[in-house]
Amino acid sequence: MAVQIAAASRSGLRSALPLLAPAYLWLTVAIFLPLSAMVFFSFMTDLPRSGKPWAFTLENYAAFFSQSLYLTLLVASLRLGLEVTLWCIVIGYPAAYVLAKVLKGRSREAIFLLVILPFWSNGLVRIFSWAMVLREGGILDTALNAVLPFKINIDLMYSYPAVIIGLVHSYVPYMVLTCYLTLQAIDDSLIEAGRSLGASRLQVLKRVIIPLSMPGLVAGAVLIFVPVVGSFMEPRILGGRTGTFYGTVIEDQFVAVFNWPLGAALSFILLAVVLVILAVTSPVLRRAA
């Protein structure tokens, strides 16, 4: 498939150029220019704007290796990315399956809308509404105590689980969408063929449906893992003191400490690590897909 597309684009490149030009122009202006500015900053001792003299240096990158804190935080962020991705699969895949294979017509549209809804709400609103739900005396606490005969204290606010919940809520639509698309493309007759050959529903799921929906799972996982590793808003608001991650440290450099060069350097180290992870896992993922 990918090979075919590559071949097709090579042969049709000349005729496709006018169509591609706007996209490339946009990418150049919107991504390449700012990013190259950031690369530039990451090798400077200070911002030129600050008025102080500046010089080129590798110190910002060296800082990452000289202090174990950064590495610890990076590992914590990678773990966060992994956990959130896994939860998104656990929650999103079954939802996508039900949407694609069980529901039909109106009810499908309605549920689909509910799944997409987080996409359409403002990120901050989303996070603060979770804060109201999760804190002690908040909605979850009150509701559970109203139902349960015994008294329990639910105070998830400013904890690791709160960060996970907030992030999963924000990112699960990606998983639902990508999996929905691949699941929908699986012909129902394949499922029926599997059953007619003596396979139980579970065996059909394991041997036919999951392998065929792997491209969606992989796409969803990449779409979720990468931004979550660098996330800062959810960790900061929902995690409080426990919410210090690699992403929040980068954010600090830009908005609090005003050490843009260090922030930029830390960002590029993260980018490099993520790229290495994707490169190492891609043969495995491609085979699975």
């Binding site: 012909d187 007759s189 394949l190 029926e192 063929a193 599997g194 059953r195 007619s196 050959l197 003596g198 396979a199 139980s200 041997r207 036919v208 392998p211 065929l212």
Partner: peptide, 28 residues
């Protein structure tokens, strides 16, 4: 279905695209 011990051939063949011919036949 899976307990009825039937064999079914579908109009669109419904071969598993993620498996080789042998694995398709071996599935049952």
């Amino acid at each position: 279905v899976e307990k009825r011990r039937i064999g079914m051939v579908f109009q669109n063949y419904a071969l598993f695209p993620n498996m080789s011919v042998s694995d398709n036949v071996a599935f049952g």
